[in-house]
């Protein structure tokens, strides 16, 4: 009797013989069945400002109970959490924290949401799903920061319990995904469209790396695709790169590149474009109609918020997001 299985969670589609593990290191074929090796075993547990994810249009000024396990479906050369994302579960120190304990802890720490983040939440799908179901029952919202490298069926299944997603759109070329991340772009674009269709609040993060994905032509193309397929209200975060992991030879992204990228995206029609990982006025939210300052942020701290009932307090324009 054949004991080979195929994982259908992400586009990697790992075919695993008896005793073998998936590329993400967290799923294993045991006696002809596929098991998760990380259920209830997070290696990172923190209470973070929601702005750190980053979510700028989702419950600003609140905290998120944030968890992650080891493993990732991609292998980005610039990963900022490579110590855990590129590790096997047994190589990390873990907490014993089943889903009910996560929700209890989130309530105890007065968190409005649970966020699945740091590494790639797809690799702990079962843990995330069960936690999300329990959290929703308790009135806690669920968000994830993901690379979006997940198949449509599991993503739709999860979307029933997911309130918001921040997806890393790492570049807008197949070549970058292939050479730098060990993946492909198309499944990520499909995931973005699926999340939009499912009514999950969406924000996008693009880490700008000098010489690799800072071509304004590609950024313009990416921004136009977002406007056309997801809408002009989707917040886009251009994040500053710092040398990490295998890309320590490259310099931090110059501020000028980030401001150029922001201008390019706004010229393409996006209403909310932010700059992250650097102190700049583009961390703030401005009303797209009257241009007045709506949310002032300094780092992860919200200093002022002039959005009332989802509208600009000055001109009454509706501002897309989940505000209360």
């Amino acid at each position: 009797m054949a004991k080979t299985v195929q994982c259908e969670l992400c586009p990697n589609g790992c075919v695993l013989e008896e005793g073998r593990r998936s590329r993400c290191r967290t799923r294993m074929n045991k006696d002809g069945s596929l098991y998760s090796l990380v259920y209830g075993k997070p290696c990172a547990v923190h209470v973070d400002p929601i702005e750190k994810k980053p979510f700028f249009h989702f419950l600003p000024g609140t905290t998120a109970f944030s968890i992650a396990t080891a493993g990732c479906v991609l292998s980005c050369k610039f990963c900022q959490n490579w110590q855990i994302s590129q590790a096997s579960p047994e190589d990390t120190d873990t907490y014993d924290m089943p889903p009910d304990k996560v929700v209890r802890q989130a309530i105890a720490h007065k968190c409005r949401s649970v966020t699945y983040t740091y590494t790639e939440p797809t690799v702990f799908y079962e843990y995330m799903y069960d936690t999300a179901v329990l959290a929703k029952k308790q009135g806690i919202k669920n968000t994830m920061h993901s690379c979006g490298y997940i198949n449509e069926k599991p993503l739709r299944h999860l979307s029933n319990y997911l309130d918001a997603a921040d997806i890393d759109l790492k570049a807008f070329t197949e070549d970058f995904y292939d050479r730098i991340c060990g993946g492909s772009l198309k499944p990520v674009l499909n995931a973005l469209v699926t999340l939009k269709q499912e009514g999950v609040w969406l924000e996008i993060t693009n880490l700008v790396i000098s010489t690799l994905n800072d071509d304004m032509k590609n950024i313009r193309e990416m921004s136009r695709w977002i406007v056309k397929n997801l809408g002009s209200d989707v917040p886009l975060h251009f994040s500053r790169f710092f040398p990490h992991y295998k890309l320590t030879n490259l310099p931090p992204t110059p501020l000028e590149t980030l401001t150029d990228a922001r201008k390019t995206a706004m010229d393409a029609g996006l209403k909310f474009v932010y700059i992250g990982n650097i102190r700049h006025e583009a961390e703030n939210t401005f009303c797209p109609q009257c241009r007045k300052l709506l949310i002032e942020r300094i780092g992860y701290v919200v200093k002022q918020n002039h959005i009332a009932n989802g509208k600009c307090r000055f001109c009454g324009t509706a501002i897309s997001g989940i505000w209360g």
């Binding site: 090796l37 799908y125 079962e126 069926k153």
Partner: peptide, 13 residues
């Protein structure tokens, strides 16, 4: 006790 059956997979002949 650490192993939990995964979702979204199939047997391959």
């Amino acid at each position: 006790t650490n192993l939990t059956m995964a979702m979204f997979w199939k047997k391959v002949d």
